[in-house]
Amino acid sequence: MAYADAVEFDPTRDYPLGRRRPDLVTTPSGLRQADVTLDALRAGTVDGDDVRATTETIKRQAAVALAAGRMPLAENLLRAAELAAVPADTVLEIYTALRPRRATAAELEAWAERLERELAAPRMATFVREALAVYAQRGLLAVHERSPAQV
């Protein structure tokens, strides 16, 4: 652990993280890649839902993308980092809300607020509000309620 604390993450040099900085990548519960073994599976110390990237790891991947000059990819990964902690069903509900004419302005705004306050996802909240403004202009909001923009 001392090593991890001592050596800062360098997005220009530390990719691939799995090879170059295994000390920095863990599952949400703190397991390292090397801890995910057949013996550990047999012993029942690995939970299937736990074997995935953390918000922190995806943020580091965003930093790698940014260091490589890939701004939109980095933005996408930062949105992904926020969604990593959001339950899958909720993510799919947001997806549905963003599809054409699925949600009213109020519903999209409600999602934005929830993302911001409840789900610690400010970038996603901004993203949803941005969509809301454009959808209002392009007639892509749900029609079962008149949104202010359509008045």
């Binding site: 992904a80 990593a84 799919l92 599809r99 892509l140």
Partner: peptide
């Protein structure tokens, strides 16, 4: 829409 597709892309990446 581009927004729903982009959300989906982020959702996949998040998993």
């Amino acid at each position: 829409t581009p927004w729903s597709k982009a959300l989906l892309a982020a959702a996949y990446a998040s998993r």
